[in-house]
Amino acid sequence: MTGRLYGLGLGPGDPELLTLKAHRLLTTSPVIAYPQPDNGPSFARQIAAPYLRSDQLEVPIIVPMRVERFPAQDVYDEAAGRLSHHLDAGADVAVLCEGDPFFYGSFMYLFERLAHRYPTEVVPGVSSMMAAAAAYGRPLAARNDVLTILPGPLEDEVLKARIEAAQAVVIIKLGRHFPRIRALIASMGLENCTGYVERVSLEAERLSPLADVSETSAPYFSMLLIYKGAEDWARSSAARTER
């Protein structure tokens, strides 16, 4: 009998946004693994910290923070090898993932290496874009609106075409791409129907119409919510005060 592998979605940052199932598996699994950048603490572990026990074995998966394309195959090959030792010994392993494991989550790279060898369960989590819409107070989409999710690193012409084709858009992974994306949105006349959300559900959360944001850079954990469909949400939320 081998152990079971769990991919636990932890939500956007607020520990209270864990599902009951994720909490149960987090507190009962003897081995807890999580991605950790080589230049700082693990955000996934920070979310789970209130629920961890001292007798649980922690396995950090060190992920180098580099500009070049990731994931690096050797990082996940090595991590899969380490986790397989615990699974082969009969220990359940819970891999923590901020947000949702299958929505740009690093767990998917472990899943493809281990799920065919061990019983595996993926526990979905509250995605940051759902939390952002709730915090901003504006629904993402309704009726027959087309909702499009776009990564910020895409080229301008791709972003523009996808935005033009949709009624509702979420742009994630802003980071260093924020000035370029903001200029594109302004050129399309969409600043007034775009909301800016930063570090949603955390103490440093910030919500503001994009037109009121003066900064020329944005953290990685930020996103833009664009609505240009038939509902009146954009105009009603444009007067939202920054907080």
Results as ranks from 00 to 15, higher is better:
residue 201 S to G: 10
residue 162 R to D: 02
residue 23 H to L: 09
residue 171 I to T: 01
residue 8 L to P: 12
residue 147 L to V: 13
residue 84 S to G: 01
residue 28 T to Q: 09
residue 87 L to N: 00
residue 219 P to G: 13
residue 202 L to H: 06
residue 81 G to D: 13
residue 162 R to T: 06
residue 210 L to C: 08
residue 225 L to W: 11
residue 175 G to I: 06
residue 62 I to P: 01
residue 155 E to H: 08
residue 165 A to S: 14
residue 91 A to M: 10
residue 50 P to Y: 07
residue 23 H to N: 05
residue 186 A to K: 00
residue 137 G to W: 15
residue 126 V to W: 00
residue 11 G to V: 00
residue 31 V to Q: 06
residue 159 L to N: 01
residue 104 Y to L: 07
residue 187 S to P: 04
residue 116 H to I: 01
residue 11 G to W: 02
residue 52 L to K: 07
residue 18 L to S: 02
residue 229 G to I: 03
residue 20 L to S: 02
residue 84 S to E: 04
residue 182 R to M: 11
residue 197 V to C: 13
residue 115 A to P: 02
residue 76 Y to F: 15
residue 237 S to H: 05
residue 100 D to L: 01
residue 230 A to T: 15
residue 239 A to H: 14
residue 135 A to N: 15
residue 208 S to T: 11
residue 117 R to L: 11
residue 15 P to V: 03
residue 157 E to L: 07
residue 171 I to E: 13
residue 211 A to Y: 12
residue 146 V to L: 15
residue 126 V to P: 00
residue 148 T to A: 09
residue 197 V to E: 00
residue 55 D to A: 10
residue 128 S to C: 09
residue 219 P to D: 05
residue 10 L to V: 00
residue 132 A to I: 09
residue 68 E to I: 05
residue 75 V to S: 05
residue 101 P to E: 10
residue 1 M to G: 04
residue 139 P to N: 08
residue 49 A to I: 10
residue 107 F to G: 15
residue 172 I to N: 02
residue 43 F to Q: 06
residue 108 M to Y: 09
residue 216 T to H: 11
residue 92 D to C: 03
residue 28 T to N: 10
residue 181 I to W: 04
residue 181 I to A: 04
residue 96 L to S: 04
residue 220 Y to W: 14
residue 33 A to K: 02
residue 38 D to S: 14
residue 23 H to W: 13
residue 108 M to E: 11
residue 118 Y to A: 15
residue 73 Q to Y: 03
residue 66 R to M: 13
residue 166 A to R: 09
residue 114 L to G: 00
residue 243 R to W: 08
residue 178 F to H: 12
residue 199 R to L: 12
residue 59 V to C: 14
residue 127 S to Y: 01
residue 206 R to K: 02
residue 207 L to M: 04
residue 106 S to L: 08
residue 125 G to D: 00
residue 140 L to H: 03
